[in-house]
Amino acid sequence: MASNNTLVVPQANAALQQLKYEVAQELGIQIPQDGYYGYMASRDTGAIGGHITRRLVQLAEQQLSGSARFGK
């Protein structure tokens, strides 16, 4: 079965990977070098995903508020 998770902007993948490692380091969570997350606790992977989402929303809000001020 093919995956439906296609990236709209493929170049963003590297930035998201970097963000994942930064957030994990900030939280003190070690990401497996082999890329297999099966041995990680769901709590840890959820914490990483939650922090990434918060940071992306914060960046989007900053961009929107900046464009709203200067777009008039």
Score class of each variant (00 low, 15 high):
residue 17 Q to Y: 05
residue 60 A to M: 13
residue 65 S to N: 13
residue 40 M to P: 09
residue 65 S to R: 15
residue 35 G to M: 04
residue 1 M to Q: 06
residue 50 G to E: 07
residue 8 V to R: 10
residue 30 Q to W: 01
residue 41 A to G: 03
residue 13 N to H: 12
residue 69 R to M: 08
residue 18 Q to R: 15
residue 68 A to D: 05
residue 71 G to Y: 06
residue 8 V to H: 13
residue 30 Q to E: 12
residue 38 G to F: 08
residue 70 F to P: 02
residue 66 G to M: 11
residue 59 L to M: 10
residue 72 K to P: 13
residue 28 G to K: 14
residue 18 Q to K: 14
residue 66 G to S: 13
residue 19 L to D: 06
residue 2 A to G: 07
residue 69 R to P: 00
residue 46 G to M: 06
residue 13 N to K: 15
residue 58 Q to L: 12
residue 65 S to M: 11
residue 8 V to E: 08
residue 64 L to W: 15
residue 33 Q to E: 14
residue 51 H to G: 04
residue 1 M to V: 04
residue 60 A to H: 09
residue 9 V to A: 13
residue 26 E to F: 07
residue 38 G to D: 02
residue 21 Y to C: 05
residue 44 D to K: 07
residue 22 E to T: 14
residue 19 L to I: 00
residue 1 M to G: 10
residue 57 V to G: 00
residue 72 K to Q: 10
residue 46 G to I: 01
residue 57 V to R: 12
residue 19 L to K: 02
residue 56 L to T: 14
residue 31 I to G: 02
residue 52 I to D: 05
residue 5 N to Y: 11
residue 42 S to C: 04
residue 54 R to T: 08
residue 7 L to S: 12
residue 48 I to A: 03
residue 69 R to Y: 04
residue 55 R to N: 07
residue 14 A to C: 03
residue 51 H to T: 09
residue 1 M to L: 11
residue 30 Q to N: 13
residue 40 M to F: 07
residue 32 P to K: 08
residue 58 Q to G: 09
residue 72 K to R: 11
residue 46 G to E: 06
residue 55 R to T: 14
residue 47 A to I: 02
residue 52 I to Y: 07
residue 6 T to S: 05
residue 69 R to I: 07
residue 48 I to G: 00
residue 43 R to E: 15
residue 31 I to M: 15
residue 27 L to E: 12
residue 30 Q to A: 13
residue 68 A to W: 10
residue 12 A to W: 05
residue 67 S to T: 08
residue 25 Q to I: 02
residue 13 N to V: 09
residue 33 Q to S: 14
residue 66 G to H: 13
residue 8 V to P: 01
residue 12 A to N: 02
residue 2 A to N: 15
residue 19 L to H: 00
residue 54 R to M: 09
residue 35 G to S: 09
residue 9 V to S: 11
residue 16 L to F: 11
